[in-house]
């Protein structure tokens, strides 16, 4: 526990130094707030954003898109990846498509997505879906194919039928790769989200950044950048990493980094 606390503090240390430098040097050199804001005005913008609810609204819109896009992607990607892992025919047929679309995944879909879904929720969720879907499908396929044949044979000789093979062997066996896929996919999705929100919506963190530029409100831009970074770190460290720790490392399937 003490070790966890000290490692968390050590993680924050360079950010504290950065904040101190910011608080001291921006006023000292009298930097134009239209080019870079004072720390105090960013804090002020943050407080205002929370008070009038706009910041929360932007964060909520962004997170909702990520959640919906990711869940939809997982619902299709994991079964498809397992089917590909089990069937060499399905896998070899679809693999070229996945190679192609995983390069395309992301912001390249925005123009066509806005034509299909209009500006806003649908188009952006579609971008998130793409970012997560291809990576998780591919990682699930990889995970299934790394399960040793003997482990599947063992389950079969202990009486596992098709359903038990899926739930007791293929899913847990592929889980380390699935979690890795989700982590990587969400990383791409988060970047894609901000870009997509600059183009195709009127609410969300990306939109908040982009609009602030028109009014030279650098304090809102920097606030948005900080929120984007901090949210990702929280998501990765507090949600995704503990899932990996709690299961996979204990199973000895992935070596502790």
């Amino acid at each position: 526990m003490l070790w966890r606390l000290s490692s968390a503090l050590w993680f924050c240390a360079p950010f504290v130094v950065l904040l101190i430098l910011w608080a001291v040097f921006i006023p000292y050199f009298d930097v134009n707030p239209r080019l870079f804001p004072h720390l105090s005005s960013v804090i002020q913008a943050g407080i205002e954003g929370i008070k009038d609810g706009t910041l929360i609204q932007h964060i909520g819109a962004s997170l909702l898109r990520v959640a919906v896009g990711t869940v939809l992607a997982l619902l299709i990607a994991i079964p498809l990846g397992i089917a590909m892992g089990v069937s060499p025919i399905i896998s070899s047929f679809l693999t070229p498509l996945f190679r192609f679309f995983s390069v395309l995944a992301g912001i390249a879909w925005i123009p066509i997505a806005t034509l299909w879904f209009g500006y806003g929720f649908g188009a952006i969720t579609f971008v998130i879906f793409n970012a997560v879907f291809f990576i998780v499908t591919y990682n699930t396929l990889l995970g299934v194919s790394t399960i040793p044949l003997q482990v599947r044979n063992a389950a079969a000789s202990l009486g596992a039928g098709r359903w038990a093979m899926l739930t007791e062997v293929l899913l847990p066996g592929a889980l380390p790769n699935i979690v890795t896929g989700i982590r990587t996919g969400l990383g791409f999705a988060w970047r894609g989200l901000i870009a997509a929100e600059m183009i195709a919506t009127n609410v969300g963190l990306g939109y908040m950044l982009f609009v602030a530029r028109d009014f030279y409100r650098t304090e809102v831009i920097v606030l948005g950048m900080i929120v984007i970074g901090v949210l990702w770190l929280l998501l990765d460290r507090l949600v995704l990493a503990p899932i990996e720790r709690a299961t996979i490392e204990r199973w000895g399937m992935v070596q502790r980094a």
Binding site: P148, V151, A154, A156, S157, L158, G159, P172, W251, M253
Partner: peptide, 19 residues
Amino acid sequence: KGPGPDRGVVFQSFALFPW
């Protein structure tokens, strides 16, 4: 005809379920 619980198997690679 195919694997079944009437024949238990012990493998050289152990083949335990790590999870």
